[in-house]
Structures are given as C-alpha cells and as structure tokens.
Amino acid sequence: MYKKTSTAAAVAATTCLFLIVGGCSATSTGKPEADKPEAAKAAPKAKAVDYAAMSPKALAEYLIFESGSYELDQPTQEGTNGRARLTQDDIQKTCSLMKGENLSDKTREKVSALAAASIKYPEDGIKLGDWKKGRELAWSGFGYRTAHNPDDHAKRATGGNCYNCHQLATDRTGGNIGPSLTGYGKIRGNSPATLKYTYEVIYNPHTYFACTNMPRMGATGVLSQQQIADIMAYLLDPASPVNK
C-alpha cells in the first residue's frame, strides 16, 4: 500500500513536471503579454530555464526582460515603454560598476568622449536665464516617474531634481550625494568658460566626471536648453540666493 502510494506520487509529480514544461513552451510563442489572461501573466515562464546554470549577469537580464517581473509595456511620458526604461545605453552599461570594480583610464576616456559628443549647444550661445525660474526647477523632483503613480506632465512642470543631491541656497535643505554648490557663482565668477563648463556638466556630466551618479539632464531631454539656462542663472547670477 505504502509503495503504491509513493509510486502514484512519483507519477503525479512527473506528470506535473511535463505540464509545467508544456506550459512554458506554450508561453514562448512570442504572443504579446497583453493578450494573456492575468493569471498567465503572473505565472513565471522561469521553469523553462535553469537559473542556477546562468551567470549572475545573464540571469539578471533574464529576470528583467524575460521572467514577467516588470510591466515592460507600461507607457512613459516620453512615448516609449517600460522596456525602453530598463534597456541600458552604452554609458549606463559601462558605468554599472559592481562593488570593488574601478574604471580604467581607457574606459574613462571612452565615457567622456561619448558624453561630450552628446552635447547640443544653444544656437545663440550659452546665456543665463531667470534665476527665479531656476530656483523652482532646482527644487522640483517632479517628472518621469511612471509605475503605480505616473507623473502627469500636463498638470505640473517637470523639475531638475538638483536639491535631492546638492545643497544650493541655504534657505532650503539639499542632499549631499553630490557636492555642495552653495556660493557656486561667487567662487567661479561667470566668464564664458565657466558658463560653457556649467552648461556641459548639467547637460551631460560624464564629460568631466565619467560614471558620475549625476543624471544627464540635457542628453536625456529631461531639461530643455531654456531650463538649463534658468538653472545656470540660479547657480551663477550674483543676485541668486545661491551666491548670497
């Protein structure tokens, strides 16, 4: 009796295994996720592959793009989708340094060159905008968040996120992931060279600081040239609270 039961259990387990494998091959027909019922979407296709046999990098890519873990079709404010947000460009790939990994000089040069090539300058030259507008842009962290609570850009202007990581004027509390920029213009003046450098750092900071944590606000299109000019005024205008 006991033996029979365990045989039956083994048969059941084997059948189940076949069902799982069968279920998996059925999901890899290239059908878009949206066509599937909710339950099928949630069911991982993972059983078809052996996680333990994959390299950590290969498994990470699999989990992100193939395992049904992310809402890859979720729309974004820029008209792309979740998949695009998770897909790495050259700089992101090169700069995903693991603990203890360092940037070689050659890679540093490559990243800086890529960054410099991405910069587009204003046709009428780099000028300072309105520091008051720049102050609000520097403070606002609104924009480009999607997921369960997407930022509606039609209802509210997007910001530059500067205060999240930098201390600027001392009337508001800034973060310290980036260096303090209090007195930025007072220290540097506003020569054409300083204007150009500041514009380039905001547009694509990897030009000077390869693999920096700072976002590429101009290169990614988060900030327009006019918005960069306004933030530059906040940093460099002698009348700005940053320089008081």
Partner: peptide, 18 residues
Amino acid sequence: AMRNAGEVMFYRRSGTMD
C-alpha cells in the same frame, strides 16, 4: 543564483536618470 542576480540588479544603472 537569485542572490547573485540581485547583486547585479542592485548595481545596474538604467532609466531616465541613470
């Protein structure tokens, strides 16, 4: 395998703000 893939994901940069 899951821990090691999680480590890669932890250091993996992407999205609008890198």
